[in-house]
């Protein structure tokens, strides 16, 4: 399990271009938003800010997790198959996806704050939300990426399958973001936070249970 995780981080370092292409993708998205709005350090309506932020993050994160199985070469798959049990593989993919997503989400937040100002008042809660959302995305999408990898047109199927599933996570995240922007008391977001945690746990539990059925072939 730990070896698998280390193996993935290592192979990631070897193919740095993939990680940096993701970061560059996100940064260009943010920059296009900034140019399209044509504002120079002017005030952006909070609702619009959070919509743009989550849209940019959504596409970057889906791409990030999608590659966990989509870009695996057939040889690697057989190698992993012979090496570890499916439970270990999905767990390591989920943990690794979680780390990657958190990193990308924080980078995205940094660049948004740089170019499109930072309306967040309750920054601690917002970062907690980012981490929780990253966890949810990685839990839900790792399984879907394994499904999509088996189809003929993987990346298209991945997009179609993933969007309806993660809307729940995204809706909760957007609600908490709105509370963070308005600087509301933390108790106001407790319902959404609890539900976000519940969705995350359910998604990881189902991924863990269902993955062996996909892996076996």
């Amino acid at each position: 399990m730990r070896e698998l995780l280390i193996y993935q981080v290592r192979s990631e370092f070897r193919k740095k271009s993939l990680f940096f292409s993701l970061v560059l993708y996100l940064v260009s998205l943010v920059f296009i938003n900034y140019l399209a709005l044509g504002l120079q350090h002017r005030f952006l309506e909070p609702g619009l800010w959070s919509a743009l932020f989550w849209m940019a993050l959504l596409s970057a994160l889906v791409n990030a997790v999608a590659k966990s199985f989509l870009h695996e070469r057939p040889g690697t798959v057989t190698y992993l198959y012979s090496l570890a049990s499916p439970e270990q593989i999905i767990l390591s993919k989920m943990v690794y996806g979680f780390l990657l997503c958190t990193l990308i989400a924080l980078t995205g937040y940094f660049f948004f704050a740089l170019w499109l100002h930072n309306p967040i008042q309750d920054e601690f809660l917002f970062v907690v939300t980012l981490v929780l959302t990253s966890f949810g995305f990685s839990a839900a999408l790792s399984l879907l990426s394994a499904i999509a990898a088996k189809t003929n047109n993987g990346s298209m199927v991945m997009a179609v399958l993933s969007f309806p599933i993660i809307i729940g996570i995204l809706l909760m995240a957007i609600k908490i973001t709105k509370n963070c922007i308005d600087g509301l008391d933390r108790a106001a977001s407790s319902d959404e936070l609890l539900l976000l945690v519940a969705i995350n746990l359910m998604a990881s539990a189902f991924s863990y249970l269902l993955f062996p059925y996909i892996w076996r072939s």
């Binding site: 499904i147 599933i165 729940g168 969705i199 359910m202 189902f206 991924s207 059925y213 996909i214």
Partner: peptide, 17 residues
């Protein structure tokens, strides 16, 4: 097999929604 897995996963995600 894959669509069964997706159906179960989707149903689990639909309940909270």
């Amino acid at each position: 097999r894959l669509s069964s897995v997706y159906a179960i996963f989707a149903f689990a995600a639909m309940i909270p929604l």
